[in-house]
Design a protein around this nucleic acid. Structure first.
Lengths: 104, 104
DNA sequence: GCATCTCCTTGCCCAATAGGAAAGTACTTT
DNA sequence: AAAGTACTTTCCTATTGGGCAAGGAGATGC
């Protein structure tokens, strides 16, 4: 269990899906992410840069044969932030089931 | 169980908390919401108007003694959208636990 | 009876953000 | 030499959320 901590950066729809995907895939390739998320090259590139700048992902550039390949993984900080955010969401949403009033 | 359906309107942080609160409280008063959410009058008023315009909340104005009181409740549509959105979030987040790769 | 207060609502402004389009970079392939 | 791959960066625009301030409609204070 993580400490609930709402993270605006992760919350934004695209990044939530992106980080969630990364949380499930160890290293993921640029192309794979782009297709899964239905994003343009530029949109994905920018989001990855953003996430890298705050230290949530690690970006590794390598070559497959002679072609460049960009791979991404969640950093420890990124995973912690994601887990914390999910915990925060659960806390927010949990409220919605707490109260049972008559005549509902 | 609701059909997962990501709802951008509900997803925004303030409205997610707001709708979640409403989902827990039957009728809620303006003041209560404002204090729970730490919003200014205008910010809350605008969000409520937005939610009302798409039919997610019902706003009822009445008097307590001689003072006006604004009360809010989630409509059926609002609750459906909220439930659907929560289901969508769960689906997104669920992915993050699915894959186990060797060498993790 | 005019000013002030409550309880919102509305208008104006601004800063932040996200994404498309397109150009740029650095190679590789044809 | 031209075109393609795999991104990155720049430019632009549309949207949004919130602060601040003014409005408004009746209640209350002096």
């Amino acid at each position: 269990m993580s400490t609930p901590r709402f993270d605006e950066l992760i919350h934004a729809p695209t990044r939530l899906s992106l980080v969630s995907l990364l949380a499930a895939t160890e290293w993921a390739e640029f192309r794979y992410l782009r297709e899964q998320l239905g994003l343009s090259d530029s949109a994905l590139s920018k989001q990855l840069t953003t996430l890298e700048q705050v230290g949530y992902v690690e970006i590794r550039k390598s070559f497959v044969g002679k072609r460049p390949r960009t791979s991404v993984t969640l950093s420890r900080a990124g995973r912690a932030a994601f887990d914390g955010h999910v915990a925060a969401l659960q806390e927010i949403v949990a409220r919605s089931g707490l109260t049972v009033l008559p005549g509902g």
